[in-house]
Design a protein around this nucleic acid. Structure first.
Lengths: 232, 232
DNA sequence: ATGACGGTTCGGCGTGCGCCGAAGGGACCC
DNA sequence: GGGTCCCTTCGGCGCACGCCGAACCGTCAT
């Protein structure tokens, strides 16, 4: 009985179109100000304040006050995973693409983007497939790094073994992509890998959104380590 | 924009206490009649009808009409996983346990139960741990069967390899238990394993609910295959 | 045929909640 | 200090939705 009200209360946080749009925007993993979010989802600042209160009280969002700004972001990776999981129940949006500007932006997003803290889009899925083909990842019987996969991350990409297995978060887990309808690597391994590729400038952000692209340097460097498919 | 309304619409289905209670009841994986559900959650039959309509239209539930009865159950395993995932965000309910009857029922549930179509509770977690210790399951770098684990299921427990890798559902996946706060085996492997243990009468249902127990026969048989921990 | 039963449809009631604009309070800049 | 900016609180409006009881419709029993 009480369990049901907890579940209902949690679901109610996402059951409003405005709050849902806020959470989807925050899936980029970055901190937004209250005003930015209000403008992005198209409501008055006062309305946004109320929504943010509820989301923070419900534990989905975390806030950081700084001067006269109030930054807000997803409380932790499990929240991002929850929202991705829920979103995955809908088919890929064919993207109406009204103008050339939106069309190319949509195409860039489908090509590669960050999904909270790891890589998604064709880039994320392609990388995951390449790692699977190389025997680094086991996708057939679940979703886990193989022993060689773990060694590859620490030796070739110089990720810290300690950071990889920190906390309760699983090292490797699948995250269902809403455009590709395919699993891609998430978990701490996915997050660390994404960070390393960005740090190395093998992958770079396009503009200020979630879209990313493989740089020429990244293409050659990764090509030496894996059999990369053609990522358009 | 449209994506947000989809997400909100899906969440709205679970955002009502009555519908949430219905879904939690259906987590036992069985088909309930509309009247049973109405009585269980404490609303009038007419109210239940409306809720069931929405849940079915939203794709969370599937119906099967039979004579003057209308049976309803969760549409597919991904729905069960979704609800379990959401529920896992709350701590374990300490179970107020008003009377002896409820206390023992709660204890039985914590000891072992089915979670939609696989085993949970201490039994499910213990079995998962034993399989991990035996090198059948990799929990450290994700959640996947090892090659020997796959062979064990087909050779020792005579599960059909074809059935194991049928459809889009992953063979092995972790499901977070709300009493133990630990992962246990789900996915087709978890479902097939549960079915086999019930068929063998190594595990038996207690009464008509979700509670199950290890039978003496099951204890000796499984003890030959694994290093089973003490399951109280 | 008659009645019991499970489920559904419909109308009506109450309320919870999402929205806004106006007014107020800190933080920052000059 | 004055002005600007970001955010918040408050009051009020209106819609959406959850609830029930009454009436109705098949199905199954006797």
């Amino acid at each position: 009985m009480n369990r049901a009200s907890d579940l209902a209360a949690l679901a109610a946080l996402l059951a409003d179109q405005t709050r849902a749009a806020m959470c989807l925007a925050l899936l980029d993993g970055r901190a937004w100000t209250a005003g930015e979010l209000a403008a992005h989802v198209g409501v008055a600042p006062s309305t946004a304040t109320g929504h943010l209160h509820r989301l923070i009280d419900g534990g989905l969002l975390a806030e950081r006050r700084q001067g006269r700004h109030r930054y807000v972001q997803l409380a932790d990776p499990t929240v991002a995973h929850l929202i991705e999981d829920l979103s995955a129940r809908f088919g890929p949006r064919p993207a109406p693409a009204r103008g050339l500007r939106e069309a190319t932006a949509g195409a860039a997003l489908r090509r590669g983007r960050t999904c909270y803290d790891h890589l998604a889009g064709r880039l994320g899925v392609g990388l995951t497939d390449a790692m699977t083909a190389a025997g680094l990842l086991d996708q057939a019987n679940g979703f886990a790094l193989t022993a060689t996969g773990l060694a590859w991350l620490t030796d070739e990409l110089e990720l810290s073994p300690d950071e990889l297995r920190s906390g309760r978060r699983p090292v490797a887990r699948g995250c269902l992509d809403w455009t590709e309808r395919r699993q891609h690597l998430a978990g701490t391994a996915g997050a660390q890998l994404c960070r390393r590729l960005l740090d190395n400038r093998w992958v770079a952000r396009i503009g200020s959104g979630r879209a990313v692209r493989l740089t020429p340097a990244g293409k050659t460097a990764l090509g030496r380590l894996l059999e990369l498919p053609d990522l358009d």
